[in-house]
């Protein structure tokens, strides 16, 4: 009898080894492990055996059944994994075919820089104060310590409207007066604002100069605002805007609405201060004009300059954007060529 078990095992395993698909597996299982299969047949012969052999034979058939089931599962897993591998292989696509063109959209580079500015200044307690583009001569010049015929008026080529009292602001500085008057509560409250906005100058439009450009003006007024605060604040801005170890340099300068006045240079971030074409081989890039608010301007804003002081600064976002991205032509900004805009 044991021969019949061995023969069956041999035949079954041999048959299983040649099976490669599900149908074969089902047929094999029916043939050997099914209710009417060969193993069941062996169980059926137990009754015809002598009593003494029954137990042993039964055990051996059980073992055979277990062995064949295991072999079946192994074979089944193998066939399934082979099939999966085949399917994966057949399902391969050309990953180099072009993507579906999704519309990306984009924010104008000038806006991007303004956002960066606004965020940095907001973190430092400076909030946005919006002021008007079409200004009175008085606010753009006279109240900023630039009376009519002042030599410094030559520094700015102004667009006048047909009403000689009204012009397009040449800088965001008239917003200083408006902010002081709006927020200063008659010269009794401190102020910390930035004034972003479009400015206008009657110039030849070239790769380097435009008739309209944006500026960000900053203004802090308080009872104890010091020039060292201005330096510290600008240095902090430079660290956040350019790099944590940006070096800053200050040059004495002149703006009618600040005194003392200074220009702020940051170490050229393109050459690390070693000198390059962009920084004109000086290692420095001019980033801001700044100074302590002139006493006359404080007065015109409603403050007593013997009690109050302040600082102000002005920056040009387009210039900074140009430096950062190596943009050679300022006319790109208002040209709105999608081939330019899509690069941001």
């Amino acid at each position: 009898m044991s021969q019949s078990i061995d023969a069956l095992r041999e035949a079954a395993l041999a048959a299983l080894g040649s099976i490669h698909d599900n149908d074969g597996l089902s047929a094999w299982r029916a043939q050997y492990l099914g209710r009417r299969g060969a193993v069941s047949g062996l169980f059926g012969t137990i009754g015809s055996l002598p009593k003494a052999e029954r137990a042993i034979f039964g055990k051996r058939v059980n073992a055979l059944q277990g062995e064949l089931r295991q072999a079946f599962e192994g074979r089944e897993a193998l066939i399934q994994s082979q099939r999966l591998a085949r399917e994966l292989e057949e399902g391969e696509i050309d990953i180099s075919l072009p993507a579906q063109p999704r519309r990306r959209g984009g924010i104008h580079p000038s806006t991007r820089t303004h956002r960066e500015f606004q965020q940095i200044w907001a973190e430092m307690g400076f909030q946005v104060f919006q002021s008007r583009d079409v200004e009175e001569d008085e606010f753009n010049f006279t109240l900023l310590n630039l009376p009519p015929h002042h030599p410094a008026r030559d520094m700015q080529d102004t667009f006048y409207t047909t009403d000689p009292r009204v012009l397009l602001r040449t800088h965001t500085s008239p917003g200083q007066i408006r902010a002081m008057r709006a927020l200063g509560a008659g010269g009794s409250k401190p102020i910390r604002v930035i004034l972003p906005g479009m400015c206008y100058r009657q110039e030849q439009v070239t790769a380097r100069s435009e008739i309209q450009f944006t500026q960000v003006e900053g203004l802090a007024v308080g009872r104890n605002i010091r020039m060292s605060d201005l330096k510290g604040t600008i240095a902090e801005f430079a660290k956040r805007m350019y790099s944590p170890d940006a070096r800053v340099r200050y040059r004495a300068s002149y703006f009618p609405f600040t005194e003392p006045s200074m220009e702020v240079d940051v170490e050229c971030f393109l050459c690390g201060g070693a000198g390059c074409r962009v920084c004109k081989y000086t290692g420095w890039l001019e980033i801001a004009g700044s100074g302590m608010v002139h006493p006359e301007v404080l007065r015109n804003g409603g403050y007593d300059p013997s009690e109050w002081s302040g600082f102000a600064f002005g920056m040009g976002p387009e210039r900074i954007t140009m430096l950062k991205h190596g943009i050679q032509d300022i006319r790109y900004f208002w040209g709105n060529d999608l081939r330019f805009l899509q690069q941001f």
């Binding site: 330096k231 510290g232 200050y250 200074m262």
Partner: peptide, 16 residues
């Protein structure tokens, strides 16, 4: 101007 220190404003902060 390089001799002037860098400081942080000690002045009262306006309301945000």
């Amino acid at each position: 101007y390089d001799q002037i220190p860098d400081t942080i404003m000690a002045d009262e902060m306006p309301p945000q």
